[in-house]
Each structure stands twice: as C-alpha cells, then as structure tokens.
C-alpha cells in the first residue's frame, strides 16, 4: 500500500509516491469510464455526505458523480440553508453528522483550516473540497493528471500559474503539488494579488505576463475571485484583461505546444479570452473536468480502503 492517509485535507502532507499512486488509479478510472466499465462495488454499502458551506456547482457535481459511479450512497447538503444560520457551530454540525455514521465526508468551507478542524472531530474519512484560501487538493490532483496525460510526464516542466493567486486555494495546492513533483513554477500576478513570501516557496515571481510566460509548457489561469475581494485589488476588469488576461498574443510567448488550463468557472474576457478557452488545440479545460471525476473516484477509493483496513484492525483488537 502506498497511500496511507486517513483524510485528504491537503497536498502539503502527501508524499510524492502517494500522489503518483492516486494519479495512476485515477488514470485507470478515466480510461474505464470512457469505455463504459462500471464499478458499483467499490464503495457499495458506504455513505458519502457532501457538505458545502460555500456555493459550488462543478466540484459538488463531480464528487457526487464520482461517489455514485463507485456505488456509494450519496447525500449532498447545502449548509447555508440549514443549521449554520441558526447559530450552530461547525463542530456541533460535525458531531451531529458523525453520529449518523457516514464513511466519507466531503467538505467545502469559506474559512482556511475549517476542514482540518472538522476532521479532528469525526471518525470517517474527510475530503477537503476547498477551505478558504488554504487548499483544494482534488483540484491540484486533477490538474496534475491532466498535465501528465497531455505532456506525458509530471516532472521537469515549466508551469506558469497566472492571476489571482492571493485568493486562490487552487494556486496553493498546485504550487505544493507541482513543487513536490520537481517542476519549475512561475507565478504571474499583479503585485496586489501576489501573496507575500512566495519566492521562499521556490517559485519564480513575475508581474509581467509576457516575461513570465516565456517558454513555459503549461499555462494555468486562475479565476479572478471577485467575491473574496474586499477593496480595490485591481483598477478595473478591462485593465486587468489588458495586462493579465490570456489572449493569443500573450500565449505566443509560451512554447508552441503549451497547454492552457483553467479551474473554472471562467470569467471570459476578464482573465481569459474566449477564443483561447475554446481552442481545442491548446485548451484542456474540458479534460480537466473529466479528470476531476476520475481523480475523485480514485481519492475516495483509496481512502475507503484505508478506512476499511482501520475498522478491520479495530475489530480484530476487540475480538
């Protein structure tokens, strides 16, 4: 067994071997899904609860589909509408859910660290579906799988991450994952959207898009997170698009076979030109969505195996 984690809270605590194990399995699931092979037995009898304290369509749908394809009983809860508004704390919600004995808990929360906190209080496997500006591990894993399939490898690539890095958990998880796999990471953002100390993570930091994109293999665009901005970070969306939006001219500085990625949902005409996003020769955005389901299937499969092993060990101890 080369995947030992009990939870998937972030990339930070994953070993490169664990990442590779997960991506290999996800690769298999992606192929089998394309061929129509079903795996209803993998999570049969297990309950998966999706708890989203923040709006999400794609991630939630992706987790739901992944669970259903593997045969889990899936329940999704939109938390804004329920007990949180009645004043219940996160920990009470966690304890309540824990009493219902779920096996897999998928959580998204607007505050950094909230999913870690919750994981301490429950005895099922917790998957972080994004916590504040901290981590979004399944997004980084699906990005990694997409890159690996497009480029044939996941090491010694030059990868640019561009845009709203300050508010992005996707960027943090990707920096961590791509760094662990020994890639060259270039961060491109207006200085107001660049967190401090990023050069200390071993990244190259650029404020000029053309300079930053020079000869990269992968261009990863980020969504401008307007909902997290509480004050002027950029003068206007049109100036942002002019200086940092990905268009054909700026993309020409990257390698001719460079791929374009975006975690979605896209703000067309803000961070990315619609024509680039739709260019089937460059854009792998649709593949990312496809890989998302595969990666989540693999993550839940591996965590469920560990969960079953842990429970079996506990029963042996009791007998």
């Amino acid at each position: 067994m080369t995947f030992n984690a009990q939870h998937l809270l972030g990339i930070e605590h994953l070993h490169p071997v664990e990442i590779t194990t997960l991506l290999d399995l996800a690769d298999q699931y992606a192929e089998q899904t394309r061929r129509g092979v079903r795996h209803k037995d993998v999570l049969a009898g297990l309950t998966q609860i999706n708890m989203f304290f923040e709006n999400s369509t794609r991630t939630q749908a992706s987790f739901e589909l992944a669970g259903k394809r593997l045969g889990a009983d899936v329940m999704s809860m939109a938390m804004q509408a329920s007990s949180i508004t009645k004043g219940e704390t996160l920990i009470d919600t966690a304890l309540t859910l824990n009493a219902m004995h779920p096996d897999l808990l998928v959580v998204r929360h607007p505050h950094s660290g909230a999913v870690d906190l919750l994981a301490q209080k429950v005895n099922c496997a917790v998957l972080n579906a994004g916590d504040g500006r901290h981590e979004h591990p399944t997004q980084a894993l699906l990005d990694a799988l997409t890159i690996r399939r497009a480029k044939g490898r996941l090491h010694r690539l030059s990868i640019a991450i561009c845009g709203d890095i300050a508010h992005s958990r996707v960027a943090r998880s990707n920096i961590m994952l791509l760094g662990k796999m020994e890639n060259r990471i270039r961060l491109i953002a207006p200085p107001t959207l660049m967190p401090t100390g990023m050069d200390e993570f071993g990244c190259e930091v650029f404020t000029d898009m053309r300079e930053g994109l020079k000869d990269v293999d992968v261009v990863m665009m980020l969504r401008l997170q307007k909902e997290r901005m509480d004050g002027g970070f950029i003068p206007s969306e049109r100036e942002y698009f002019h200086r940092y939006g990905l268009d054909a001219e700026k993309l020409s500085y990257a390698k001719p076979d460079a791929i374009v990625m975006h975690p979605g949902p896209m703000n067309r005409g803000v961070e990315i030109d619609g024509n680039i996003a739709d260019d089937i020769n460059r854009s792998v955005i649709q593949t990312q969505v496809e890989m998302g389901v595969a990666v989540r299937m693999a993550a839940m499969d591996l965590l469920a195996q560990n969960l079953r092993a842990k429970r079996a060990a506990r029963e042996d101890a009791v007998c």
């Binding site: 916590d131 504040g132 901290h134 981590e135 943090r172 401090t196 100390g197």
Partner: peptide
Amino acid sequence: TSGKFASLRGLPA
C-alpha cells in the same frame, strides 16, 4: 502577520 507562513496557511494577514 503577513509573510510566508500566512501565505502558506491562506489566512488574512
């Protein structure tokens, strides 16, 4: 406090 740690943890600094 802003810095590498704050960026790593994704906390407002």
